[in-house]
Amino acid sequence: MTTPLNSQARFAASLHQFEGAESHLAIHRNNRMAALIDALAIAFPATQRIVGEEYFRAMAGAFVCAHPPRAPLLLAYGDELPAYIAAFAPAAEISYLADVARLEAAVMRAYHAADDHPLGVAELKWLTQEGAAEVRLALPATVFLLRSRFPAATLWERNLAESFVPLAEWPAEDVIVCRPALDVIVRVLPPGGADFLEALQRGHSIGEAAALVAAPAFDLPAALAFAFSHCLARPFAA
């Protein structure tokens, strides 16, 4: 059990090799791999449910090799996993997998995002006054928008449920991930909702943002009510 390894560079290099399971170095190799894969498994439960644990751990292991963590904290380690999955040839058939992973990455970011002080329903009365269309609002740091060609939010929700209920339809979904207080909330946005919120985020006034929305079914009062009831708005600071 005595090893001649005398440099941390050689030791660290040996952790990336997968041969030599007979050596006690294998324990450290396994510890490293298990810790990183476990961190990803915790952050991406629906993604894991879709492909199964064995598949997920193999895919996560490949990700770890391609994207070893740089900093000694793993809270944001999965940020690059969705893009990796999107380009991961063996999973190409599961076309929606990367979008579910993107949603889970957003959930993780919302969970750890800086606490913000958004405006609530009580502030809606501002907007009934004249000149409300000129008001500029920003989205808090706890809000993330995601557009999917697939029903990403529905797939995410169904795959977190105890028993999976198959989807009857496969509509595209614009999804909002937000954390008004401590619980992360995931909702499907109505038509035009994402365009509207993105326009607000870019600094457009409420009136300008509403005019930029192309969707004919866009309902401005409903979009504002949704934004305020989910605490999506904060005072805009230029």
Partner: peptide
């Protein structure tokens, strides 16, 4: 223990001589 080397976090508590 050590856990980082060459700008990489190795996610384990590694032994030293």
């Amino acid at each position: 223990a050590w856990s980082s080397h060459g700008g990489e976090f190795l996610a384990d508590l590694l032994p030293l001589p």
